[in-house]
Nucleic acid binder design. Structure first.
Lengths: 243, 243
DNA sequence: CGGCGTCAATGGTCTGACCACTCATCCTCT
DNA sequence: AGAGGATGAGTGGTCAGACCATTGACGCCG
């Protein structure tokens, strides 16, 4: 049940070939000093030089295309779109726990805005969803649980109420890391009760269509969450070497 | 040179097969009422039933894996991770211009936070970068340009100064749409000059390490940008049917 | 009954082929 | 000579089939 306890004995994931190739292509971009608009060598050449099949090259390229880093034109070639952060997918970026403080900050940026918008746009139905999530949290905690699901649903409901799919999408992208912080925070003694109050204040502000109050309530809540997890994981020295 | 002027005669891009397959798989997830954790049919079955090669199925799966929607285990199968927004990549979500108001709101959430953080963390070198970008903007405008590159570089410099790669990554994901709003805004008569002032205020606040002032300056600036583009593109009726 | 080997199922990669599209080149007709 | 079209090499898109690597359940054997 306890998952991360034996950190050294975790199942050691073998990387897929196309992931390595994405990395290699990133190195190539740097070495060749490619800039936006430059063309990559043909797939056949890359395959030969890297000693892999064209199939694998194509998988890597397709992923890079989906991530918006390259632009592939049938019959034309593959072109670089964004040299910055080439091949650095967000899940990959966040797989190290020391990124969690950054995740908390990103969450503040996104969710405070979402709360502000929600206060101005929420429908009655969305208020019902928020109340239901909060109640679910209360029930779970009353029965000795941590209220994790209710907490997640509540924030989800606020996001829905903001009626901005771009923001929701961005929040979804860091959802996994956010979930980690959620669990960590609610595992703190006495924290679930206080969390209920914080959510209650957010709900009231959104219900009252008070955008500023909603933003403040959300910010206070997230600071409370960060208070624990942040200080535990990150020595406050920022800006050091990264890779 | 003028790119988007003949909207009807744009080069009509044929969709790639794997993109269609991603969509089909999304439909399958709904029809089969799959929930997180459910397993997909084997690649060979999917290929046969959809009448395509396994290669193409794999490309679709690899993309979905990179986007975090599925979890593929060698020898085990492919499992659903997030049913919500399945296969809905951000570029695809934003390719319709009516999403631009949402992009502006997302930009506010991200960049206001970035400005706040930048005020607290910026190094001398990053201040230099901000000043250089602003100067580049001034020079370009003095010579009759719109200062687009300088504007972009300035916001980039602020983001760098915030020293939060997660936030920067999220901002990068909407970079293309942001660029559209930038061009549109700076094309407004008299706007470049006012934009310089707005950037100047942001720079001063960040330089003074005044987080609140930086946030306010950035928000004012973005509101100014939105003032034009927002009202032009979006009839203010939100929450209507989408697809 | 429990541990362990076996093997079918399933994803991972490779090969070679052919199709579709692009673009520069050259040829033809005016 | 110039405009237009035909041609062909280059390059991405897809396919079929094969084989390897890993998983997980089943059943054998102690």
């Amino acid at each position: 049940m306890v998952r991360g306890s034996t950190l050294a004995l975790r199942p050691l994931e073998r990387s897929r070939l196309y992931e390595d190739l994405v990395e290699r292509l990133g190195e190539y971009v740097e070495e060749a000093k490619m800039v936006a608009g430059d063309r990559f060598p043909p797939e056949r050449d890359l395959a030969r030089q890297l000693g892999v099949s064209r199939t694998s090259i194509r998988q890597a390229m397709v992923v890079l295309q989906a991530q918006g880093f390259v632009d592939i034109r049938h019959g034309g070639g593959a072109f670089l779109r964004r040299p910055r952060g080439f091949g650095e997918s967000l899940p990959r970026l966040m797989e190290r726990r020391r990124r969690l403080p950054e995740v908390l900050e990103a969450r503040e940026g996104l969710e405070v805005k979402l709360a502000t918008l929600a206060a101005g746009r929420r429908t009655g139905q969305q208020l019902v969803a928020m109340r239901a999530a909060l109640q679910r949290m209360r029930d779970d905690i009353a029965h000795g649980g941590l209220g994790i699901e209710g907490d997640r649903d509540f924030h989800r409901a606020v996001a829905e109420a903001a009626q901005n799919r771009v923001l929701v999408h961005l929040l979804d992208e860091i959802a996994d890391a956010v979930q980690e912080t959620r669990v960590e925070s609610l595992s703190e003694p006495g924290r679930p009760l206080r969390s209920i109050d914080a959510h209650q204040r957010i709900l009231e502000a959104v219900q009252a269509s008070d955008a500023d109050a909603a933003a403040k309530a959300m910010l206070d809540h997230l600071r409370q969450v960060a208070d624990v997890s942040l200080l535990r994981w990150e020595p406050p020295s920022a800006g050091l070497a990264d890779e």
